[in-house]
Design a binder for these strands. Structure first.
Length: 939
RNA sequence: GCCCAUGUGGUGGAAUUGGUAGACGCGUUGGACUCAAAAUCCAAUGAUAGCAAUAUCGUGAGGGUCCGAGUCCCUCCAUGGGCACCA
């Protein structure tokens, strides 16, 4: 029986004493491999069950790469600024640093316990002044380049936490930490101009091996949209405002404009009569929390300013409203409203009775040359009492349709509709409900052998009563008049024109699809694309607008009114100007305080350190900036510092960075998709632009590990503590190797997987079995034996490939297959035994070290060469393949590698069961796929 | 509402990318060893029918392409994640 605890202690000490995993960063003689984990926040509770999953995955790769002869950098550190340490400091009055150091100690111990091959000499910690000196230094560079700046802007203010938050820290209008309400508040804030990097961050995604879903999340977050800026003059003033729109081609359909309540022009243009209402509305909007503002299906609200804008294409006066459906923080905070073709504008226009002008006609049917133009109507008639619609049924001659018809010369659409209804169905007592959007329909009429292009107006009528007159039908009009339900219509009305007319008639929706332009002078008959470029030409020509690309991504709010973060290295002079600290004055170290709690007025606790704040700088009286940086500051560049962790002159030496960057493999949770992973890409891109790092993108390949769920299939945590698993307990009971093996065998790395104690038990049994077979039963003999040759080479091949592609579960499965084969033999040749131990080593490093030692080696296995396989020896020479008759499996046959197609065919056709199924049938063809299948087609 | 994933036995999951569905593990059942238990070893294990050979069904549902579909196409459902009045 192996003594797990003894073995694990022994080898942990050995690795440390012998510096087994020390990386010589200056050794450029070997190819490099940089394997990175997302470093943990050192909380008070230590590692959870999820940590070892990702960390084991990277460790396996790191260990294999090292054995394959790479110079591997596999570092670990701590993201040690953050709220819990600060809360501890507030409640105990102790400095958060000591609390943090204690937690780091626990983490370090646990990580060593789990056997990870980290080079601890490279450890970094973001709250260490030696580290944050350089965080401040990079911030200073950003400041000098105008990318870090102080701006007055609406921010996410969390009263409970006493701080502002970044957009990714606000979820559903509540703080990510604690779930406290977040409101909008105008404040002067430090921000980083991440929008300036929007395009580069978008482009960079094309060059990296990241999960497609994560790239997509980043693309959505950046939110690029191509459109135009258009200037609108305000009538009777010298004021004008700019709107952003993606559909400048619909400008002829703009019937009003909307400013966000915070827009600078609101106070200037509001008329005296409207002042009171506007003020009231502005106040309400300002007091709303983010949650209230974005509430689902909220009815549109708004107020008329009393002012009018001039539509630049036709000089029409259109009213200017304010509404909170226009956001101050997106675009220009002002829009032109085209209610016919935008759902939000449509709802707003309907509510406030604003005009709707259609400028796009949806095109249905197939367009042909030589079309004859007609004007026509489609009428939907609704009987409210029966909840049914009037249709005419042509049977197999044309199916079910609504009433339709062609307008006579000089006849208007409404008259035509009423006439057609009366003629075809006899109903003559109707109430007009609405006229829908016109459609542009193309069709071929068989009876006339002609192509038609029609402009069709749709109507919805309500039946007032059942009064009917006689139908006036043409001789060829042979249909039934039928009242049917909505379900029947959805199912049976196939004609595109009628189908769409029904949708627009019975729903309150704007026409948001593409189409051809109408009511738009020089844009008429153009499609969307052509109309946009023509309109842009017009706007640029008149100098009232231009093409513009807008991004959804906002400035990255980069200040927190908290203590436990990097101090922002800025001083403010009495004259209102500011300066960054000189390099020699970095790091700017946090002052010690008596009381770490936030101030009620929302200012930073650092304000309390009067002597620290009030200084003289460059011979002038100055105040230090008292905000600190957010948690994501240090994590935006920590991966660079691992490469040169003790450098006192630069954040990292460029030659070393050039050798080691980019990170070859980065594994961490998917929850950082738009926070850390976007921020660090931006910093790295920026440092690249400065010539300070060698690659644009920091992380070449990224993989997210899934979540380890409780045995109940639900996330582990406070809710179901009985289902939570502590890695310490598992190591204590089964050993670190077992925990590593189990977490890798559970399923694909990226998937969420439920914990199962039987699986842990089984993992330990598998390791015990190997130990028994290799050590106790003395099967291992230094002899030649061919019986295990093939499966050994297959195993080396599969495990090596699977480690490379991070398919650890199937690698383990292959090792089990190998062990099952060993079980059946009396001899295990030493060569195979040693090779197998090496394969298993990255997963179970402790036990394999001990086995290696027991097989007569006195040095670590970790630096031994990785086993190789012989492709020739992997090859099967006999296969079981299936024989299908008409797609159904009827037999399996044994074929040799040397068999020709004809041999295989012959074998297949001589199978009993195959013959049975061929009886009385004619063989059409026989398909032979070598090594796979024989497929016989018969009739 | 929009975007992206995912859906396979009692269960965790495999499937060479269009070629014998269910590898490997768990569980279950039977057997060996034992006074007995544990541990270990051997065997069976998708469902239904049949003594069996075998047959039918079977990868969320319904269609389609193909000699052949878990895999490709269309429609829908469910779960998870992201975004959400983004002009």
């Amino acid at each position: 029986m192996m003594n797990v605890k003894e073995i694990e202690n022994k080898w942990q000490k050995y690795w440390e004493d012998n510096k087994t995993f020390y990386t010589d960063l200056k050794d450029f003689s070997k190819p490099k491999y940089y394997v990175l984990d997302m470093f943990p926040y050192p909380s008070g509770v230590g590692l959870h069950a999820g940590h070892p999953e990702g960390y084991t995955a990277t460790d396996i790769v790191a260990r294999m790469k090292k054995m394959q002869g790479y110079n591997v950098l596999h570092p670990m550190g701590f993201d040690s600024f953050g709220l819990p340490a600060e809360q501890y400091a507030i409640s105990t009055g102790n400095h958060p640093a000591s609390f943090t150091e204690k937690n780091i100690e626990t983490f370090r111990k646990q990580l060593k316990m789990l056997g990870f091959s980290y080079d601890w000499s490279k450890e970094v910690s973001t709250s260490d002044p030696k580290f944050y000196k350089w965080t401040q230094w990079i911030f200073k560079k950003l400041y000098e380049d105008g990318l870090a700046k102080e701006v007055e802007m609406p921010v996410n203010w969390c009263e409970e936490l006493g701080t502002v938050l970044a957009n990714d820290e606000v979820i559903d209008g509540k703080s990510e930490r604690g779930g406290y309400p977040v409101v909008r508040k105008m404040m002067k804030q430090w921000v980083i101009d991440i929008p300036a990097y929007a395009e580069r961050l978008l482009d960079g995604l094309e060059t990296i091996e990241w999960p497609e879903s994560t790239k997509e999340i980043q693309r959505n977050w950046i939110g690029k949209s191509i459109g135009a800026h258009i200037d609108f003059k305000v009538k009777d003033t010298n004021e004008s405002f700019t709107v952003f729109t993606t559909r400048c081609d619909t400008l002829f359909g703009a019937t009003y404009c909307v400013l966000s309540p915070e827009h600078r022009l609101v106070d200037l243009i509001t008329t005296n009569e409207q002042k009171e209402k506007v003020e009231k509305y502005k106040k309400e909007a300002a007091s709303k929390s983010d949650l209230e503002r974005t509430e689902l299906n909220k009815e549109k609200t708004g107020v008329f300013t009393g002012a009018f804008a001039i539509n630049p294409v036709n000089n029409k006066e259109i009213p200017i409203w304010i509404s909170d459906y226009v956001l101050a923080s997106y675009g220009t905070g002002a829009i032109m409203a085209v209610p016919a073709h935008d759902q939000r504008d449509y709802e707003f226009a309907k509510k406030f009775n604003l005009p709707v002008i259609q400028v796009l006609e949806e095109v249905t049917g197939k367009v042909h040359d030589n079309e004859t133009h007609k004007n026509s109507i489609v009428a939907v008639v609704y009987d409210e009492s029966a909840n049914k619609y009037l249709t005419i049924n042509w049977g197999n001659k044309g199916g079910r349709l609504f009433i339709g018809g062609t307008r006579k010369d000089g006849e208007d659409a409404l008259t035509c509709a009423l006439r057609e209804i009366k003629e075809e169905t006899g109903y003559d007592n109707l109430e007009l409900v609405k006229e829908t959007f016109k459609m542009n329909h193309h069709y071929y009429a068989y009876n006339k052998d002609k192509y038609f292009e029609i402009e069709c107006t749709g109507f919805l009528f309500k039946l007032k009563n059942n009064h009917q007159v006689n139908q006036e039908l043409d001789t060829d009009e042979n249909f039934k008049v039928e009242w049917v339900s909505k379900e029947i219509i959805d199912e049976e009305i196939k004609d595109e024109l009628h189908k769409k007319t029904f949708i627009y008639a019975t729903n309150e929706i704007a026409m948001e699809n593409d189409g051809i332009h109408i009511n738009s002078e020089y844009l008429n008959n153009l499609n969307k694309e052509d109309a946009i470029s023509k309109m842009l030409e017009f706007l640029e020509d008149k100098r009232i607008g231009s093409k513009h690309i807008n991004y959804r991504i906002r400035d990255w709010i980069f200040a927190r009114q908290r203590y436990w973060g990097e101090p922002i290295p800025i001083v403010h002079y009495e004259d209102g100007t500011s300066d960054a600290l000189k390099d020699d004055d970095l790091p700017l170290v946090l002052p010690e305080l008596m009381d770490y709690s936030p101030n009620k007025d929302g200012s930073s606790p650092l304000n309390k350190a009067k002597e620290w704040v009030n200084i003289e700088y460059n011979g002038k009286k100055a105040l230090r900036e008292t905000s600190t940086m957010p948690g994501s500051a240090g994590s935006s560049w920590y991966f660079l510092r691992y490469i040169d962790p003790n450098n006192e002159d630069e954040f990292a030496n460029y030659e070393l960075l050039k050798h080691w960057m980019p990170v070859d493999l980065y594994i961490g949770g998917p929850e950082h998709a738009v926070g850390h992973l976007l921020y660090s890409r931006m910093w790295n891109n920026y440092l690249y632009d400065k010539g300070l790092v060698p690659t644009k993108e920091p992380f070449k390949k990224l993989v997210h590990q899934g979540m380890i769920l409780g045995a109940n299939g639900i996330k582990m945590g406070k809710r179901y503590p009985e289902y939570s698993v502590n890695p310490n307990d598992i190591v204590e009971k089964y050993g670190a190797d077992t925990l590593r093996l189990y977490e890798m065998f559970m399923g694909p790395l990226e998937a969420d997987k439920p914990w199962n104690n039987n699986g842990v038990e089984a993992s330990r049994k598998f390791l015990d079995r190997i130990w028994r077979l290799f050590i106790e039963e003395e099967k291992v003999k230094d002899e030649e034996n061919k019986t295990l040759e093939k499966i050994y080479h297959q195993t080396v091949k599969k495990v090596t490939n699977d480690y490379e592609t991070l398919n650890f579960n199937t690698a383990i499965s292959q090792m089990m297959i190998f062990i099952n084969a060993v079980q059946k033999e009396n001899i295990l040749p030493l060569e195979y035994a040693e090779g197998f131990i090496k394969l298993l080593n990255p997963i179970a490093p402790f036990m394999t070290e001990e086995m290696w030692n027991k097989l007569g080696h006195d040095k670590t296995i970790a630096t031994e060469p990785w086993p190789l396989y012989d492709e020739e020896k992997c090859r099967e020479n006999e296969f079981d393949i299936g024989v299908q008759v008409n797609g159904k499996l009827r037999a399996t046959i044994k074929v040799l590698e040397t068999d020709t197609e004809d041999d295989i065919k012959e074998k297949a056709l001589s199978e009993q069961n195959v013959i049975k199924h061929l009886e009385g049938k004619e063989i059409i063809k026989v398909i032979v796929i070598p090594k796979r299948i024989v497929s016989i087609v018969v009739k």
